[in-house]
């Protein structure tokens, strides 16, 4: 048989929505302040001015009282390790980070999930002090920031 060859590309750029990191600018989200503050080294979230509820994740409407009168507050840069795991289950685009240390840090009573940097599994224990670390995410198209935690020095 003779066939006409139909070519499809053997490589395509990673589609924007498949890289896991959220879109961060004003054009795409109404909590862009979170990412702007993160770039300055501050972990922030929203708090309801009507009922006082402290949120995680940051929001535009308070789920407790439906008020949209919220303010940005800075969270401590430190917290306590609530749970942790070393995982070899990694999504596309994170292969170079395997095995990955993942945990949950208690910051002012908020349970915040995070990657854990600058540590080995045997260094970690429930209740230990952790500190914030800000990372820049590079993809050649846009500048983005994200948070991680590491054992407190």
């Amino acid at each position: 048989m003779e066939y006409r060859t139909v070519k499809i590309p053997d490589k395509i750029n990673l589609p924007t929505m498949l890289d896991f990191y959220p879109l961060q600018t004003e054009k795409w989200t109404r909590v862009s302040r979170f990412f702007e503050n993160l770039k300055e080294g501050k972990l922030t979230t929203t708090q309801c001015k009507a009922c006082g509820k402290l949120h995680w994740q940051p929001r535009i409407v308070c789920p407790e009282c439906m008020s949209d009168d919220l303010e940005w507050v800075e969270l401590p840069k430190e917290g306590k390790l609530h749970a942790f795991v070393e995982s070899i289950v990694v999504p596309l685009g994170m292969e170079q980070e395997m095995p990955m240390l993942v945990g949950v840090v208690d910051v002012s009573g908020l349970l915040i999930s995070t990657k854990i940097d600058d540590a080995k599994l045997e260094d970690l224990e429930i209740g230990m002090d952790m500190e914030l670390k800000v990372v820049r995410v590079e993809d050649g198209k846009q500048e983005r920031y994200w948070y991680r935690f590491r054992p407190k020095k």
């Binding site: 942790f84 995982s87 994170m94 993942v102």
Partner: peptide, 14 residues
Amino acid sequence: DGVNGLSAPPFFAM
């Protein structure tokens, strides 16, 4: 959460 490497195995491990 997913962005932090959380899928089912690490979540249920915790």
